[in-house]
Amino acid sequence: MKIGVKILPRNEVLDTQGRAVEGTLKAHGRAVNQARVGKYVQLDVAETDQAKALAKAKEIAEFVLYNPLIETFELEVVG
């Protein structure tokens, strides 16, 4: 089963890439309130049960994929 891990910088952490995107959008007349640039990791886990797959992905995300000091993550079922 494929599980997606969406990782975003925490709101209180300065996101230099996000700031650069904001700047470019603004310069081209497409200003937004905020842009945050994160990472997306797709895991193909050897589980058919959705709950088990999500639990495994959560464990993996917490093991190494995200750093709680600067990031948050969300899981999604890809299929």
Partner: peptide
């Protein structure tokens, strides 16, 4: 820092 032997974290330079 990542091994939690030191506090805090190092992120991308402000200048990118």
């Amino acid at each position: 820092c990542e091994a939690r032997l030191l506090p805090g974290v190092l992120v991308r330079n402000e200048s990118r």
